[in-house]
Amino acid sequence: MFNLLVAPFVLAGEPAQYPADLDAAHSWAYPGDVARTLVALSRDDRAWGRPWHVPAVSDLSVRAITARLAELAGLADHQLIAMSALALHNAALVDPITSGVPEMQYLSQRPFLMDGSRVTETFGVTPTPLDAVLTETVESFHRAVV
Rank of each mutant, 00 (worst) to 15 (best):
Q105K: 12
L107C: 04
A91Q: 13
R110F: 08
T66L: 07
T126C: 04
V54S: 01
V54T: 08
L60N: 06
R63T: 01
L86E: 15
A64D: 06
T122Y: 00
V119Q: 02
Q105H: 08
L113M: 12
L113S: 07
Q79N: 00
S99G: 13
T120R: 09
A70Q: 04
V101Q: 09
L86W: 13
V94T: 14
P111G: 02
A64G: 00
S84A: 14
H53I: 02
L113P: 03
R118H: 12
T120H: 05
F112Y: 15
A92I: 08
P51S: 09
S108G: 06
D77K: 08
R68T: 04
P51Y: 02
L69T: 03
P102Y: 10
S108H: 13
I81G: 03
P96M: 05
I65V: 15
V57T: 13
Q79L: 04
Q109E: 14
T66D: 06
A85N: 04
F123W: 01
P55V: 11
S108N: 13
M83D: 05
D59V: 09
L93D: 12
A92F: 07
L60V: 02
A82C: 09
L107G: 04
A85Y: 04
A85L: 08
W52E: 06
P102D: 11
Y106E: 08
V119T: 11
Q109I: 08
V62E: 01
I65S: 05
T98M: 15
A70N: 02
A67C: 01
A85S: 06
E121M: 14
R118A: 15
L72C: 07
H78F: 15
V125Y: 03
A70K: 03
F112D: 09
V125E: 01
S58V: 03
S108I: 01
